[in-house]
């Protein structure tokens, strides 16, 4: 418990906590843009996740209220699609490919090295909110396996020993 609150404190002090408040002002605009359309929930969730980088509880509650949909239903949709996340994302999203080619050419070792270096598991974000770690299923670059992506940039033939060098430009 103590550990958790320490972590939360750290999150609050982080760089975008002030801008998150500003995002809430834009939340109503996003909802207004879609609310009249049928099936508004998913496009709203997409836009809101793009805005915040994740789906905070307060935003989901607001969406539920304004769309007049039970909170359980909104949560059900968020939980169904792996695209949606309720965990704050880091500044940089690292995706490690574990498609067949990358897997057999050592993708798992790369993932382990990243996980050890950043001290986070898959789906988690570092305490300083610099990095989030995810797993992908084939980026269509099998000839370059194993591949990782950091944001939109692709790194090819990655070896665990190169991890530090790759990360250094994002730190």
């Amino acid at each position: 418990m103590g550990e958790k609150s320490a972590q939360q404190e750290k999150v609050c002090k982080c760089h975008d906590s002030i801008s998150e408040e500003q995002y809430y002002e834009q939340l109503d605009d996003i909802i207004d843009q879609h609310i009249e359309k049928e099936g508004a929930l998913i496009p709203i969730l997409q836009s809101v996740q793009n805005l915040f980088g994740y789906l905070p509880e307060a935003a989901l509650r607001k969406i539920s209220r304004r769309l007049n949909k039970p909170y359980s239903e909104v949560a059900g949709v968020v939980g169904f699609y792996s695209y949606f996340s309720t965990i704050p994302k880091g500044e940089n999203t690292i995706r490690v490919c574990l498609g067949t080619a990358c897997y057999v050419r050592g993708g798992k070792d790369v993932l382990k090295a990243l996980s050890d270096e950043l001290k986070i598991g898959v789906g988690e974000t570092t305490e300083d909110r610099k990095f989030s770690l995810e797993v992908g299923r084939c980026f269509g670059a099998c000839g370059l396996a194993p591949v990782i992506m950091i944001n939109d940039e692709v790194f090819q033939k990655v070896k665990p020993s190169r991890i530090n060098e790759i990360l250094s430009s994002y730190r």
Binding site: L60, K69, P70, S72, V74, S82
Partner: peptide
Amino acid sequence: CNEIQSVGSLFAQGRGFDSTIGPAF
């Protein structure tokens, strides 16, 4: 809970084998 009672405390959560029926989160 949703369609007859309009209460909406229960819904399908998650996906696949890990899915559950219940309140949010």
